[in-house]
């Protein structure tokens, strides 16, 4: 049997430095990339040169006061609904985790009902609440009727929108929050209990901050989703971004340019939200990175705020 001589390391090293290394070619990758580039050029040309898109009209409506008013309502609705949905979602999630069936079953029922029906159906249902309950009355035994108001005066389109979408969104938020709370290990709870922490303190200081890391990413997605879902409220005549655009093109018939304006603003807000989400994510996982570098975003924000305060003080 022939025994191969052991290769000397220095010889091998000399070989690799002596010869030129030829990288592997990827002809198909280049072909595909070229095809995509050509398609994109064609698409850009079709979009830019097409007179039907009326780019000058788009530009003239971007900062139109009616559009901006609608944008403001869309953003305001999203924030208000997300706030109520988070509060209700947190309550429902805590009920789900309760050992008492009288709390966990109704919570499960809530999620089943509000997550199981389409947002649009719920929106129209709440808007038409007066067909089910004519008046909203507070009646206490012994005291009689405290107040009674016709449902229609309370259930304005805006209120119906906030109530319907908050409850709908709360169904999703409850599941997200419950998942987050469950992700915090039992050892954390026990350690906090052993230090004498009350359940409320334990939840606020130990469980929720750790659950946030699991809760934030899906909540960011939900907020982006919700921003777009609020366009449904145009159905019940709430003056959001889409409704404002519709109101204009119903008069001027500039349908496509105005829809492009709407698209533009939705993309702008979603982009801002995405940046905000990544800052929040970094803030809540600050213990994972080196502790000096992690919360860059928020500390920078803090810097801006303190600078502004100083500036105010100087005035």
């Amino acid at each position: 049997m022939n025994v191969l001589p052991l290769k000397d390391d220095s010889v091998a090293a000399k070989h690799t430095t002596q010869f030129k290394v030829v990288p592997l070619r990827h002809p198909w990758r280049w072909t595909a990339a070229g095809l995509v580039a050509i398609l994109m050029l064609l698409l850009t040309q079709a979009v830019v040169s097409n007179p039907n898109l009326q780019w000058p009209v788009v530009a003239s409506y971007i900062l139109n006061p009616i559009i901006l008013q609608g944008l403001w309502i869309t953003v305001g609705l999203t924030l208000a609904i997300m706030f109520f949905a988070s509060v209700i979602g947190m309550i429902v999630a805590l009920m789900m985790l309760s050992p008492s069936k009288m709390l966990s079953l109704p919570a499960a029922g809530f999620i089943w009902w509000f997550r199981g029906t389409p947002a649009l159906v719920q929106l129209i249902l709440w808007y038409n609440l007066s067909l089910i309950f004519k008046d909203i009355t507070l009646w206490l035994p012994g005291l009689g009727t405290i107040f009674s108001i016709p449902t229609n005066t309370i259930m304005t389109p805006l209120v119906a929108a906030v109530v319907a979408l908050s409850l709908h969104e709360a169904g999703y938020m409850a599941e997200i929050i419950r998942n987050g709370l469950k992700s915090v290990s039992r050892g954390q709870t026990e350690a906090a209990l052993c230090l004498g922490m009350k359940p409320s303190l334990l939840l606020r200081r130990i469980v929720i901050p750790q659950a946030m890391r699991v809760i934030i990413p899906p909540t960011g997605n939900e907020t982006i989703n919700l921003l777009k879902t609020t366009s449904l409220v145009s159905i019940i005549a709430v003056g959001d971004l889409l409704y404002s655009a519709q109101a204009i093109y119903a008069r001027t018939f500039e349908t496509i340019p105005l829809l492009l304006v709407v698209t533009f603003w939705y993309l702008v807000v979603v982009s801002i939200m995405t940046v905000g989400q990544s800052y929040l994510e970094r803030y809540y996982s600050r213990d994972e990175a080196g502790h000096d570098s992690a919360p860059v975003g928020l500390s920078r924000l803090g810097l801006i705020l303190t600078m502004r305060e100083k500036w105010r003080g100087a005035q």
Partner: peptide
């Protein structure tokens, strides 16, 4: 719960898996 907590505060406990608060 609040009364149990007051008593527990006087009894320290050290766990196998440390259970420090990571955040």
């Amino acid at each position: 719960a609040s009364q149990i907590c007051a008593r527990r505060a006087e009894i320290g406990m050290v766990f196998q898996h440390f259970n420090l608060f990571p955040h």
